[in-house]
């Protein structure tokens, strides 16, 4: 597996973490009403979307490099 393929695995895990942490924070906000949780939740979801956009850009940029 090349660095390109491993990077895709890593970005996928990071996207899942970003959405998971976002959900965790938003649940925390609805339970305890802490503003910080709302900020973390919204920022995390935004970062998750940003990482998906980056992933698409990365795949396009490195389309000629092997996955091996």
């Amino acid at each position: 597996m090349s660095l390109k393929a491993f990077h895709i695995v890593f970005i996928t895990a990071s996207v899942l973490l970003a959405f998971g942490f976002g959900a965790w924070s938003l649940v925390g906000y609805s339970d305890y009403g802490r503003t910080a949780d709302l900020i973390y939740g919204v920022s995390s979801v935004a970062i998750g979307i940003g990482l998906i956009t980056y992933g698409r850009y990365f795949l396009k940029k490195l389309r000629d490099i092997s996955y091996l």
Partner: peptide, 12 residues
């Protein structure tokens, strides 16, 4: 990447 992936699991 491996080291960073470990942290991605470690943090949550």
């Amino acid at each position: 990447h491996f080291v960073d992936l470990v942290w991605i699991f470690l943090f949550p």
